[in-house]
Write a protein that binds this DNA or RNA. Structure first.
Lengths: 211, 211
DNA sequence: TTGAAAAGTATACACACGTCTACTTAAAGC
DNA sequence: GCTTTAAGTAGACGTGTGTATACTTTTCAA
């Protein structure tokens, strides 16, 4: 991660500030950002070639921050249930403390700039891979093949991000969102373990005897 | 649903056309839309008070279309697995045939305009409710309480929409996305049925192969 | 048939934008 | 200390924008 300084940093931070106030990174104007940063519009050109370039730098800045944060997470509990609970709690806590980063990420993931979208997708995939490897290494979900763990990890990352905006914006619903997300994860893994068991068998209360 | 005619319809359709080409509804300009529609910019004011008003009408238009489409879906197979498969296939087919509507919906769901976001959320919730009631009425997932069915329905609707853009934009990955979505749904419902069973018990049940 | 309402157009204004060129100030290397 | 380079500023350009006023055409019911 390249640490930003001076005017460059000022501009990036200004953009994040603007994004938090219900704007989308892609829709920011050069002059708007410069104004917010307290700089002359032309200073922008001293640091960035154009707005797409700028967007990538902003995303890179966020990615660096987030990666470091995720690395710190690499401890926590033993069982899967505990891990899911702690991780979800932790991730949402991170969202809460970094509303700008969260908002930007969610918006641009589906935003109109394909360059930014690609960049974000790659980051998410990397996070998902990290999560999956962690689960495998620590054998948190025994009996599940690695491919499925990877798939579910990716879905989970996506789902969490998808709910991040709601979480940030609606403080009174945070408990609910957190609970739903935990249940989501648990159901995914549990469901995968009994994927080939007929629904009726599961419904009749005998979870592991099948056929 | 109010059927649009004449210039009003032309403007809405123009906006959807523009949105498909990597634009976001919120970022459209009045003149841009009018130009695309082949009308004078001021004609816009004959039909809409401002751009927010316009956005709501566009969303309403889409909602009407979609609702009718969903109603047509209200038949399909008996078992849950079959229903999930058919429904997913059908919904994604709808996305494919209506890329503009899909793109707009996904973008604005996380977009910067809170007015549009609210409107979309309400629509999604309505769809989720409809889906849940359908599952309950036809007893597709026996042994699951209605609250959980509602919760999973909502998650499913969200998840599907979240993947819609990817589906529309990457034709070569459609099979994969569809498969993942089906597995997602199955795991959710199956997982919910064995929610209180310890992971180890499920893992030792051996309905599928492990390691 | 006529006349009012709706739909569409023409022109114009002030403003914000991205970008260009030219100038000034601050940092850094020798 | 001097010079080269980076960072920041000033002013100006053409263009696109939202919107206001005034005008023309179309629609359609009395």
């Amino acid at each position: 991660m390249i640490t930003l300084t001076g005017g460059k940093l000022k501009l990036v931070e200004a953009a994040l500030r603007l994004c938090t106030k219900s704007r989308s990174l892609t829709s920011l104007s050069l002059r708007e950002v410069a104004r917010e940063a307290g700089l002359n519009p032309n200073t922008f050109y001293r640091h960035f070639r154009n707005l797409d370039d700028f967007g990538l730098v902003v995303l890179g800045h966020l990615a660096g921050e987030m990666k470091q944060a995720v690395r710190e997470l690499r401890q926590s509990a033993q069982t899967h249930d505990q891990a899911a609970h702690d991780t979800v709690r932790w991730v949402f806590g991170y969202f809460q403390e970094n509303p700008a980063a969260t908002t930007v990420a969610v918006r641009e993931l589906n935003g109109p700039s394909s360059v930014l979208r690609r960049a974000l997708e790659n980051q998410l995939e990397a996070s998902a891979r990290e999560m999956a490897e962690d689960i495998i290494e620590r054998d948190l979900v025994p009996g599940l093949d690695t491919a499925t763990i990877h798939e579910i990890s990716q879905m989970t990352i996506r789902y969490i991000l998808f709910r991040a905006l709601e979480y940030v914006e609606k403080p009174e619903q945070r408990e609910r969102i957190q609970g739903e997300t935990e249940r989501f994860i648990n159901r995914q893994f549990r469901g995968a373990l009994v994927e080939s068991t007929p629904l009726e068998t599961l419904a009749s209360g005998v979870p592991n005897e099948s056929r």
